[in-house]
Write a protein that binds this DNA or RNA. Sequence first.
RNA 1: GCGGAUGUGGCGGAAUUGGCAGACGCGCUAGAUUCAGGUUCUAGUUCUCGCAAGGGAGUGGAGGUUCAAGUCCUCUCAUCCGCACCA
Length: 819
Amino acid sequence: MHSPDAMPEKSYDAQQIELKWSDRWKNSALFQAEENSSKPKFYVLEMLPYPSGQLHIGHLRNYAIGDALARYKRMRGFNVLHPMGWDAFGLPAENAAIANKRDPYEWTRFNIENMKRQHRRMGFSYDWSREVTTCDPEYYRWNQWFFLKMLERGLAYRKRSLVNWCDECGTVLANEQVVDGCCWRHESTPVEQRAIEQWFLRITHYADELLNSMAELEAGWPERVLLMQRNWIGRSEGAEIDFHLDPAGTPIRVFTTRVDTIYGATCVILAPEHPLVAELTGAAAKAEVKRMIDARAAKGPGDIEKEGIFTGHYAVNPYSNGKIPIWIGNFVLMGYGTGAIMAVPAHDERDFEFCKQYGIPIRPVIRPVDGTLADAATLKESFPDDGILENSGPYSGLASEEARRVMSAKAEKENFGKPAVTFRIKDWGISRQRYWGTPIPVIYCEKCGIVPVPEKDLPVVLPLSIAITGKGRSPLENVPEFMNVKCPKCSGPARRESDTMDTFVDSSWYFYRYCDPHNSTAPFDSKKIAYWFPIDQYIGGIEHAILHLIYSRFWTKVMRDLGLISNGEPATRMFNQGMVIKDGAKMSKSRGNVVSLDEMVEKFGADTGRVFELFAAPPEKEMDWTDSGANGAYGFLSRVYRFVTRNIGNAQPAPGEADKKILRKLHQTLRKVTEDFESRWHFNTSIAALMELMNNLQSMEKQISAPVMAEVLEKMALMLEPFAPYLAEELWEEQGRQGPVFNHPWPAYDAELAREEEAEVVIQVNGKLRGRIYVAFGTPRETLEKLALGDAKVQTLLDGKQVVKVIVVPDKLVNIVVK
RNA sequence: GCGGAUGUGGCGGAAUUGGCAGACGCGCUAGAUUCAGGUUCUAGUUCUCGCAAGGGAGUGGAGGUUCAAGUCCUCUCAUCCGCACCA
C-alpha cells in the first residue's frame, strides 16, 4: 500500500519536455493528411507567411488558433489537412541583396530554414510533406502556366496606362496596394501616377460574380471583410449619355446614376486628365490644368478645395436641347466612369458646392414625393433623394426610378447613350519592375510582336546570382543570357519580358497546390481538389481583406472556368484573428516592442506561449502581451503538471461525495470546451474552464478515489491537447497511456454527470438580491413562491409592505414585488 | 462627412437565451513555507458607509421599456477600424 504521497511531485521543466517531444515528432509522419480516407475531411489553413527570417509573438496567434482547431478536429475523427508554406518572393529579399550583398535566393532559403525551425519548436501540427515554397521554379512555373491560359482567353492583356508608382519600392503597385494615396509598405511614400506599359489581369470580368457570390460567404466570412470587398468592387448602376459639342465635335460621354435629373444639368465637367481637355483649351488654360493636376497630386487624397476652369465651349443636353457650359473640375476623377460628369447642382451635394462657387445656375427638377419643388433662388442645399420629376419635358410627373428606366432606354434607342454599370474595381496590374518574382512568360519579337512562351518551355527560370543595384529598370534587363532569346515563332532575335509578377499572384492559388504539391505535369490533380476543397476554415489577418482575399477569389473563378476545379469559392469560412499588442501598440521593429519567438520560448516554453495567447482575449480581438500574464499561463501549466505527476497511481480514499463533485466539474468542463470549439471559438473561456477544474481538483485532492482520479487525469490530458500539446503528450505518457494524444477521440461529456444536483434559486425583493434557496430541479412554482415568502430574511423585508406580485422562474429565481 | 465595431474593477477579460455583474488570469494586501532563485500554499481584493452584522451605489453618459437591463429601445459622448469627392 502506498502512502498518499507515494508519487513524488515533479517540477515542470517545459524546455526538457518540449525538446523531447519535438525531437520525436520531427521525422515522423504523424501530422500527414491521409489520401483516400473514409473519414470526413477538414481543411484548416493559416495564411502562408512571408519568410522575413524571424517569427515574433505577434505572428504566433494565427498559428495557435489554427493548430488548436486542427488538433481538435483530428480528435473528432476528421481527416485533417493542415499545411504550411512560404510566400517566398518579394521585395525584402531584394532589398537585403542591395543592403547586405546577400543573394535573394540564399537569403530567402536561410530565412525559411530558420522559420521552419521556429514552427517546429512551437509544435504546430503541420503536414510538412506538402510544404510549398513560391520561389521554387516547380511552383512558379504554374503561375506562368496560368498566365498563359489567361492570355489565351483575353483575361491577361498589356496596356499603357497611368499606374501607381512607389519610388521607395522602385516599382508599380496595384490599386489594392495603395493605402491613403501611399504605398502599403511605405506608409509615408505617396504614390506617383506614371504612364507605363504593363500587364493586367481582367478581374473586372468577374466583378459582378465576385459581388454576387458573396451571398455564399455570408454564413462563414466576417461581415467586415465582405463589406470591404463590396465597397472595393463598388458596383454602381446608371447610364452613359452623350452631350454633343456646340458647334458639333467629338461628343462628351458622361456617366450618371441619376439620369432622371438631367433636365437640371447646368454644366458638363471634365476631369483635368480627360483627353478632350487638350482639344478644348488654349495655351493659358492648359497651364492652369497642369497646375491643377500637380496640385492634386501634391496634396494627396482627402480634402481638396473644389476648383474649376471654364473651357469657353458649350455642350447640348440631349433631352432638353439646352446649351450648357463645359468646365474642367479638379474633383472629377479620370479613373472612374467616363472621366466626365454632368453637374446637377440642385440634386447633388458636390455639384451644388461647385456651381455655387462659380455662379453656375441651379435648376431644381425633382420634388420630394410629399413636398414641393425647391426654389432655386433660396436653395441652401441640394436635394439628393429620389422624388417626382418636374420641369423635365415629357418626363415630368414620373417617379425617379421609373424615369431612369424610361430615359436610359430612350438614350439607347436613339443611340446617344445606354444603361450602364460602373465598377470601382479596376483590372489588376501585375507587372513589377523588380527581380525577385515570377518572370512573366512573354517574348517580344521585332517581327512577331508579343509572343507567349510556349507551354513546353516552362518554366521561364529566374536567373540566380545576378547583380542587383536597386537603380534603373528591372535588374533582369542587365542579364543578357536571360533577356536575349530566339522568337518561338520566327526564330528571329527577340527579348524576354523583364518585369516579374506581383507576389499576390503566388498567394492567389497556393492552397490548391497543397493538395498535390509534387505534381510535375499540372498545377494539381483536379480529383484531389474535389476532395479537399473548399477550405473549411481559413485564418489570417484582416489586412488582406481586399488584397489576397479578393485576388484569390478571382483566381478560383478563373480556374473554375478553365475547367480545373468545380468550386466557385476558395473557402467557406474565414476568420480574422486580432492583433497582438505590446505596451499599447502593435508590435513593430520601429517601436522596439518586438518580442522574438525564440526569446519567448526560452523563457516560458511553446505551450505557455500558446496558452497565454489564447487565454488573454477572445481570438478575434486584440490581445495584450505581458510577461506577467504569460507567467500566469506558465503557472497554470506547472500546477497541472505537478498535480498530475503526484497523483498518478496513488492510493486514494474510498468513493465519496468528492468524486461526485469532481466528476460533475469534469463533465461541465468537457461540455464547455467542446461547445467553445463547436460554436464560437472563445478559447479564453475554454482555458478559464480548465483552470477552474484545476482549482477544484486541488481543493479536493485528498478526497478523490483512484478510479475517478484516473479518469480526470486522462481527460485533462485530452482536453489540453489542442492548447498545450507538449504537456498533454507528456502527461499522457506519464500515465502510461499509448500516444499520441491526438489520435485518441475527443472525450464526450455526459450531460447527466454534468448536471448540478440542486437548483440554486435566487430570491429577490423588488429586483434586489435578498437570499437564495436550494431545491430539487423542477420544483413547482407554487412551492418556490411559498419557500421564498417563508424565508426569514424576506419576512423582515416584507414587514408592513404589501405584496403586489410574485414572479417565479423555475430553477432560477423568485422576485417578490412589494409596495 | 458616411459606414461599422467597441466601451464592464488597478489591468486583460467573463456573464452564450433579459434573471446572482466581475468567472478565469494578472496585479495588489496579509499570513505560512522554502529560499539561490521565474518559489509554493492559505486568506482577501468593484467602489463606498460601518468595528461588525449589514446597508447603499455600480457595466462611458442621459432617458425609456420591463417584476427584472451589461444585455432591448431612443438620444449622446469617447476610442478604434473601413470608406471618403466613385457622379
